[in-house]
Amino acid sequence: MTISLTVPDILVARAKSGDLDALEALYRAFETPVYHLALRLLRSPEDAEDVLQETFLEVVKSIPRYRGEGHLWGWIRQIAASKALMRIRRNQVRATEPLDEAAAGGHGSASVVPARIDLERAFEQLTETSRAVVWLHDVEGYTHEEIAELMGRTVSFSKSQLARAHIRLRQMLDAEGAGR
């Protein structure tokens, strides 16, 4: 995904002052990356759209307090990730989904590994928690410490989730299961 995430300072300044056109311009600039992030974490387009809306409601409300430290996308992404993870927690409470790959029973279970599939489908078959850890760490560049803080878990939880998710991905991607 290659999208320019740089916006002019003047646009940010106008958005901070409450200018509706500037706020909409920010929405247009970041709607795709926010939606993409939310969709990767949540899988459901409806949930991802809801997160997009919640994220920008927060952005338009809080941007007067944005102090311009760091990249604007980093600030918006933090809000989006937080909203998406909140939704994952809500979904887990509703569906009592296991929090990790080991509990999901996927790890090392050759019988449930489907025939060769592409990475996107394999990724979508991970649990929501594992998807979130893989995406935030490997794609968005979050550290395990940052993920642990966002998820309200420990650093070792984040590390073990990432390792288990990669084992699962490898299994799903390797049709012969002869990786090792």
Binding site: A48, L52, V139
Partner: peptide, 11 residues
Amino acid sequence: QLKALPARRPA
């Protein structure tokens, strides 16, 4: 490959 996945747009 994960990083290269195409960006989806909201419907």
